[in-house]
């Protein structure tokens, strides 16, 4: 472009002949054009790469994700209520079944009902009450020094898991963390700053309630080299652990799902 402008305005160089034009094309237009095209393609490709990568990672904004979570939790709560209603209806129907029908049938039904109640109790599907221990765990009130790892100032999922393990090992018959019954398929894990039990977010203080022989359970927890020793560093940083015996506690039923889609019973007998 610029060279053409010069050719027009500059009176000094002679007019370009046919041969000059030809060599001009070959020397300038073709190589520069090709180089420019390559350049453009490179630029566009790079641009597309830049455009595509952040969108893949950050497809949802934070507020979108938050809304999604809130919606899902509302839906979850609604379904839990529905499940409770259905369970109540089932119980009523079972009771009704025991009161009607022939005498022999009633006997059978009563036996079956006892069986079902026992199974439910073992699976943690009905609320239970009894004596036991209450463990209260809470984060430290002290603030970590600037730059200090806050690990030992907080209660972690592993701590709760350790307590639950110890209580089971000491003969606990039923355990609940806050309002979540620890039963089959219970998970205790850390999600961001909160601890989830049975996929429900819990807030400190964490109340671990276990039904069993109170003194046995307490002794197990206070055992030398036991749970409290492994938490010693946290306790030194102000994490509050409080163990007390209770004469009667009520533990809620397990509300999680118990559908078997892959597992099936082996009838070997």
């Amino acid at each position: 472009m610029l060279s053409y402008a010069r050719a027009k305005k500059d009176p000094l160089p002679p007019k370009a002949s046919r041969k000059d034009t030809h060599s001009r094309n070959w020397n300038w237009n073709f190589p520069v054009g090709v180089a420019s095209i390559i350049l453009g393609v490179l630029a566009m490709m790079q641009f597309r790469t830049q455009m595509s990568t952040p969108y893949l990672i950050n497809n949802y904004s934070n507020s979108d994700t938050t809304r999604l979570i809130i919606y899902s939790e509302t839906e979850r709560n609604r379904l839990t209520e529905e499940l409770d209603q259905v369970k109540t209806q089932l119980k009523e129907a079972q009771d009704l079944l025991g009161e009607t029908g022939r005498k022999a049938d009633q006997e059978t039904i009563k036996l079956l009902k006892d069986e079902v109640d026992k199974a439910n109790m073992q699976a943690g599907l009905i609320p239970v009450k009894g004596p036991g221990v209450l463990v209260k765990l809470d984060d430290s009130l002290q603030k970590p020094a600037p730059g200090e790892d806050p690990y030992f100032y907080l209660v972690h999922d592993v701590d709760i898991q350790t307590f639950v393990n110890e209580l089971w090992a000491a003969g606990a018959e039923a355990i609940a963390v806050n309002d979540q019954r620890v039963a089959i398929s219970t998970s205790v894990r850390c999600v961001g700053p909160t601890i989830m039990v049975n996929a429900v977010r819990l807030a400190p203080p964490y109340m671990i309630r276990a039904i069993g022989n109170p003194s046995t359970l307490e002794t197990a927890l206070r055992m030398q080299g036991g749970v409290l020793s492994s938490l010693a560093q946290s306790i030194a940083h102000g994490v509050r652990v409080d163990i007390q015996k209770e004469s009667e506690m009520i533990l809620p039923e397990f509300k999680g799902g118990s559908a078997f889609r892959y597992a099936e019973p082996v009838s070997a007998r």
Partner: peptide, 13 residues
């Protein structure tokens, strides 16, 4: 030529 080339390149890309 350079400008046309770049434009064509961007289009192709």
């Amino acid at each position: 030529v350079a400008f046309i080339g770049i434009a064509v390149g961007v289009l192709v890309g």
